[in-house]
Design a protein around this nucleic acid. Structure first.
Lengths: 335, 335
DNA sequence: ACTAAATAGTAAACCTGTTTGCTAATAACG
DNA sequence: CGTTATTAGCAAACAGGTTTACTATTTAGT
């Protein structure tokens, strides 16, 4: 079927030239008679003509594509971020290309290259700590970059994040006051993601201020549930009030399962504090207290900053720190 | 900085012609001396040259972009589908562009147009019932299309789905045998999505076979929780065993909350059967029985079929019906 | 040794829009 | 009325690759 129509055919049908049609399509209609405009509009309408993006972006006018690289899109937090980005991007007529890095440098590199290939106008990245080298590559090609959630260098880049450190510090302090004596922290490798480091440091600093110590376990996503269960069981010094802080949302369910036989001790003897707005923590018994990040807003902000940079406006304030809130629930006593 | 290099410069540096470099880039190296190959490889390596996708796809060679249009990316089911598609696509060097339709025709249309603009090589779509008109538009442009989850016309299109009807029918029948007398069904509008219709029909057919009747409530995503709570409360004829079937994953938490004051009656007096693999149903108390679709596999299959069609291979069998399983849990008695 | 076939490589046309530089035609001005 | 300024519009060059059609050089075959 589709003899795919080109701007040339439109021009012929509208009895004008390619140039004029092109101007029309790009809104440069100031030097154009109403009659011509109408003729072109009519033909475009009738033929349902849509210009080829490929040909357009050949002239390096930009592709209206944004590259989004995020650690794990299957978790709710990342999901909401992307939704926030997408909603704003769509409003501004940009389209997302999303990549899942699993926080692995090789994947980040692969996506950066691919997205540069495709001619994205800019990047929003939740970077692993190794992303550093890729920043240069992106800058070499004059593409804009906004970090989200985590960051690599505070210096020159644009970013949006949440106050992980302060939020954990404050929440921990208020829990310490409730009389917990024994502390356990579980986290994924803090050297991989700056937010992880902020969270673990926040917790440890709170303990330090209160002269408490803590047992820490660093795990990765492949950790066996058994291993966590064994660890938790070993570390629970029953009799002394224990607070368990789980720094990553995907880790929380595993810890929760490990606590299966101790649920009746929650929250009096065992306190549990997690991260992020997970649907199930509202339905579990007991429900779980979590520190909640404004993920959707984070995404919106990042998109606004990026698009602003791409279009050379200077309206958005870069580098925003958004505040977390705490969803106090049954797994911790309330002050 | 970046004097962006073109194939011409590479050719000059490698002391050869554009043509030869182009052939090299596309793997047409059969008629090429090893020496030439090495020279080109070296220059590309040194300069970190990457050809412009825009220029490439101008020659209508395809963009290696796949358009994915899905109802609601924030639910786990859709998420797993997209992950399945993405994993396979990445393996085959395709890139996804994902759009959220919210099951609304206008959004579907917008995304189809935009993705056609961008020159995607094909579509994977979870279509609303109104998608019909867009099928033609896609076919007019000779793009491939694979429906996933839902479908519009059984006739000519390719699709991958799960056996919603049979799964619901069987699960319901086995529950009816346990002695439930009173039946409640909640669903989103079945006329919008074919899977919804299959599920509701499956449930009603099971009841019909057993000579039972059912109270049905059709809601949309904006329904107030209060409304559901009131409905549930009104319909629960305590004393007679009641089975509640919730046909949509996003609806289940709202119903669950509505049952707050009746949880001790579960599962003896009240049975609850939901849909999809939701993390929280494993942590709630009681845990919830759900019919689980093999979402990730569905995505993989769809991607395999689509890519197969794009590349004109005929290796994949189109039109697969994957089997659901049931995650029997505490919200229903077990046979 | 001489033709036919295979090999290695290239110049030029092409894909579809955008942008530049120029030309008529009309309007404004003195 | 003649000259300049403005308006409306177009031909041609261009963007960065791919593909076609053709040439020159070897190799193979008899």
């Amino acid at each position: 079927m589709s003899e795919k129509l080109t701007i040339k055919e439109i021009a012929i049908k509208a009895n004008t030239s390619k140039t004029t049609v092109s101007f029309y399509l790009n809104g440069k209609t100031d030097k154009m008679s109403n009659d011509t405009k109408k003729r072109i509009a009519k033909v475009i309408e009738e033929t349902n003509y849509r210009p080829s993006m490929a040909a357009r972006s050949l002239n390096s006018k930009g592709t209206r594509l944004l590259g989004v690289i995020i650690g794990d899109i299957t978790n709710t937090f990342a999901n909401q971020i992307v939704k926030g980005i997408d909603d704003l991007a769509r409003e501004k007529r940009y389209q997302l290309i999303v990549g899942n890095s699993n926080y692995i440098y090789e994947n980040e590199e692969k996506y950066v290259n691919r997205m540069l290939n495709m001619g994205v106008d800019g990047f929003i990245v939740q970077p692993s700590s190794h992303f550093h080298d890729l920043v240069e590559r992106i800058k070499e090609e004059d593409k804009e970059l906004v970090f989200i959630d985590s960051q690599v260098s505070m210096n020159k880049e644009k970013w949006v994040k949440t106050n992980n450190y302060e939020a954990v510090l404050e929440a921990s302090e208020s829990l310490i006051k409730l009389g917990y004596e024994n502390f356990i922290m579980l986290s994924a490798d803090p050297s991989v993601l700056s937010t992880r480091l902020e969270r673990t440091t926040g917790f440890l600093d709170a303990l330090k201020l209160a002269n408490k110590t803590c047992t820490t376990k660093i795990v990765d996503e492949n950790v066996a549930s058994d291993e966590i269960t064994t660890f938790i069981t070993d570390e629970l010094k029953l009799g002394s009030k224990t607070l368990i802080f789980v720094a990553n949302c995907w880790l929380l369910p595993r810890v929760y399962v490990a606590l299966k036989n101790y649920r009746n001790l929650i929250p009096e003897t065992i306190g549990l504090l997690g991260f992020d707005n997970l649907e199930w923590t509202n339905f579990s018994s007991p429900t779980v207290s979590t520190i909640v990040q404004p993920a959707y807003e984070e995404g919106e902000q990042a998109a606004a900053i990026l698009i602003d940079a791409i279009e050379n406006l200077n309206e958005q304030v870069p580098n925003q720190i958004l505040k977390c809130s705490v969803n106090w629930s049954e797994s911790t006593q309330i002050k």
